[in-house]
Amino acid sequence: MTLQNRDIIDFLAGIEPGSRLDGLREQRPETRLNAQKSYEALFEPEHWGSVTPAERFAAAAFVAGLHKATAIRSYYSSKLQDEPHGSALVAVIDAEIDRGNAHGPYGHYPAGPLSREDKPGLVYEVSGESRNFLDPKLSAALEHIHLLVFRPREASARGIAEVARCRLDDHWHRHPVATRRIPCVPDQGRYRPEGPDSKFRCHREGRASLNRTDKEFCHDRNCYSSGNRKPAKRLHSS
């Protein structure tokens, strides 16, 4: 794809330079520019952090699929296809899009006068089969994404805690010999899982990684994604 004159929205929506829609977008230049910057921050970031390219493209393909946005789904699926285990991941996401089919928004309100507007709907869970292939982090991500897409009003602190727990479990799964002093702080802009010869500092609690900011803040979530990782039995999305 060339985006020299066209941004991601032009590309996906088929907006040609010089067309009427191009002229319309031109009248909201900051909107146009920053929609593109949002895309770049998510899908072409300076640092990938702890969310791998495959995980990002899988998430995007899943969201597009749930929206039945065929062209956008194809775009992100093709990006996912190019990642390690791409074909298998695309197949899993395709199956999960079917499984997650729903019409939103729905969900429960906090108890009170709005309860009469409560609308039940699918509380999606990744299938057992897919769960066997995906690492826990991506499974948890898909379930949270489905909530965000269809029933955002049901988001809760408990749900966020659950996602955070899966992320940690995932780390344990990948690094079974690591001690529980898991989250690491950057050393010269690099993260590595803790090991006997590591040259980096590790905090003793998960809290550290969220309470800390430093020059490498984009690595903030990057405890899992760098080297020394041994292939696990299960298919990782990275």
């Binding site: 900051e30 920053n34 929609a35 921050a41 970031p45 300076e46």
Partner: peptide, 11 residues
């Protein structure tokens, strides 16, 4: 996530 925040706010 300052990059996303900046794009969000300008949009």
């Amino acid at each position: 996530d300052p990059d996303i925040l900046q794009a969000r706010t300008k949009t």
